[in-house]
Amino acid sequence: MQMKNCFFLVTFLVIFCMSLKAGSLSNDRNSFSSSSKDGRFMVGLKGGLTFAQPLVFQKFNILSPLDNTISQSGIKRYKPFFQNIGYQYAFTALYQINSSIDIRFEPAFTTYVYKYSSAYFWESTGTNSERIDMSIRHQQSLKYIEFPLTLRFLYGSGNARPFIQGGIFYSYLLNAIKSFKREESYTNSLGVSTLNSESENGDASPLYIKSRYGINAGIGIDYDLTSVHLTFDINLNIGINSVTNQAARYSAQQFSGGLYDVQDNIRLLIPSVNIGILFPLHKSARSKINCPAKS
């Protein structure tokens, strides 16, 4: 809640500063602004789907196998990014440097989801063939407030203009929730029986560090409808730092003790697909009405 207040405060300050700047410029538009098709300031909203891809650079496992047959026991198998669907929504503040370049500040609430599974088994070596399998499906949902600063280059001069963009971002973790489903089955010569099937969730916030930062890049298209701009973009958000709290890796005993689950050292790579709408704060000469002089 405190972070949300902070977010709104920052957003308000940015809008306020931009409005002041817009006001100061409205009286002395120079040659640059007069060549621009639109006002130099735009605000808007943006939202879309995120697809998280964890990049593992060090694996950790609680179970240490004493025999080679279970060397894969408990090893995490991460789902590919297209199965890790989250969402985000953002406020956009855009400053148009010239007709081809603008800079955007888009504070956003993001939810990144990634999933993995792990499997275990134990089997008898005697004459009675018995086996117990345990599989656990994990889902981590990380909610961040994100502050990206992006430079956008637009091409062409029509209403629909493609663009490329790139920039930096800083994210602050608001919370993390882990949910899991554990299933156990017993197999013998008579068949397979389900022993146990349960789902739970819990707070995983201590397992992650608060700060995440990195770079982003993307492509898209900007459609000028005169009074508003519609945007569609595909963005790639590349985290530079590990999001795992290494000092607290084993601290969530609900997960480490009950599920034998601890977090690997991971960075997050987040492709996203977004649509947005932008409202120019000051219209350019094209939108001005030229009244005929009175005779």
Binding site: P65, L66, G74, W122, S124, I132
Partner: peptide, 9 residues
């Protein structure tokens, strides 16, 4: 934390 597991039932 390590648990030394063995596959033998």
């Amino acid at each position: 934390v390590r648990v030394y597991d063995h596959s033998d039932f």
